[in-house]
Amino acid sequence: MNRTLIVMLKEPRAGRVKTRLGRDIGMVDAAWWFRHQTRALLRRIDDPRWRTVLAVSPDRAAATSRSWPKHLARIPQGGGDLGDRMGRALRSAPAGPVCVIGGDIPDINAARVAEAFDALGRNDAVFGPAPDGGYWLIGLRRVRAVPPTLFAGVRWSTRHALADTAATLPNHRIAHVATLQDVDTAADLK
C-alpha cells in the first residue's frame, strides 16, 4: 500500500517563518530555530514505509531552495489559507493513505507517523491533537474522494481548529493519536 507523508514547510527566512516565535526571540533566531528543527525532523521521519514529500512555500522555493534534503520530493503549496494549501496537498498525493504534518513539532518521529498510518487501517481519518486545540497531524485513508468541504470554515490558530476540521468530515470514522506540542512562542521552547 502506497503511503505518503506530506510535510508543510516554509522557506526558513527571517520574518517569513515562525513570526510569533520571532516576536519573542527575534526573527533571525526564530528562522534559525526552524531551519535546524526541520532538518532534524526530516532525518527522524525519513523512513522506507512511506514516501515523504515536502510542500514548500513560497512556491518558487519548492524548486530552488537548498534548505531541504535533495532526495525528498517537493511540491509548491500554492495560494490560499492553510486549509486551501493542505487540501491541495492531500488531493494531489498518489492513491493510498496520506498524512500531513508541520515542521515545528519537535517530538514527531517515525514511530509517531507509523502510529498514524496504522490508525488509518481501521479509520477514515486520523488527527494528532495539540494541547492548544489544534493538531500536528491530519491523515486520510482516501478510500473515497477528499471532501471538497474539508477545512471549510476552520478557525485556524484557535482552540477550535481540530473540532472545526473534524466537523468537515461527517460520516468518517476518526481516530486520534498522541497529543504533541508545536512551537509558536518562546514559552513553547521549554
Rank of each mutant, 00 (worst) to 15 (best):
A14V: 15
G102W: 04
T149G: 14
R13N: 11
D124F: 04
L82T: 14
R141M: 12
A30S: 02
R20W: 10
R43M: 09
K10D: 13
Y135W: 15
A95R: 15
R51N: 05
V56Q: 02
A95V: 08
R20I: 15
R51F: 03
V17C: 05
S67P: 02
F151V: 08
T52W: 06
V17P: 01
F117R: 09
S67A: 15
L90G: 00
R88N: 04
L72V: 02
V28I: 12
L90I: 02
E11I: 12
A14Y: 12
P69I: 04
R112D: 10
D84M: 09
N123A: 15
P106A: 04
S157L: 15
A55T: 09
S57W: 08
Y135A: 05
A62N: 03
R144L: 10
R155F: 10
R20N: 13
G139K: 03
A30H: 01
D107G: 11
R112W: 13
V53C: 02
G15W: 08
A125D: 02
T149L: 10
D29Y: 07
F34T: 05
D107W: 14
G103F: 00
A111T: 12
A93Y: 01
Q77K: 03
V98S: 03
A40I: 07
R155W: 10
A114Q: 11
F34V: 06
W50Y: 08
D24A: 06
G103K: 02
A62W: 03
R141L: 11
